[in-house]
Amino acid sequence: MSVVLFEEFALPEADRREVLRYMGCKESDNETEALIDRAIEVSKDAFCGKVCFCELPLSVSDGQIRLGTVRTESKNLLKNLDGCESVILFGATVGIEIDRLIMRYGKVSPSLAVCLQALGAERIEALCDIFCADMARKQGLLGKRLRPRFSPGYGDFPLDTQKEIFAILGCDRRIGLTLNDSLIMSPTKSVTAIIGIY
């Protein structure tokens, strides 16, 4: 029986180079640095890293991948999970407050909204990195290693697998993460993914 766990993670300081990269900037100047400072300042209490996750057995037959009750077909995922017998399925979010800030500053200052958007992207990736490192450490104790995380929508991994992933993880009540009819996640700065264990 797979059990879904929930954990909160403290986030490290923002990586400004990543924020720049998400804004599409190849270089920076004083004005852009000041913009990043402002984004960090207005969002200082906005982020709260939450993850829910479970371990599921993996089986493959006739190209169909089965992870607990999840069934999906994807050559790219299959390749990623090659040699694995189980996976970690997780949902992660940095919370709704950043969406509020993006919407608010979208009205007042689109440049700041763009920067907050980039900062939010950097924050959720940072959260996923911390979580994966933590899982890698724990699995390492059992003599296991982890594959890079793989999300619905990557390559040919169908986006509508999200529905089953949400059903298993109970993301809405555990971490406040929901899926709309267009398969868009709210809060928007969120990730679901599969990590192969080998």
Binding site: I96, R100, D172, R173, T178, N180, S182, S186
Partner: peptide
């Protein structure tokens, strides 16, 4: 009665 699992507008689509 538990939550619907959907987020209401303006941050969701419900």
């Amino acid at each position: 009665i538990g939550p619907s699992g959907k987020l209401l507008k303006p941050y969701g689509d419900f």
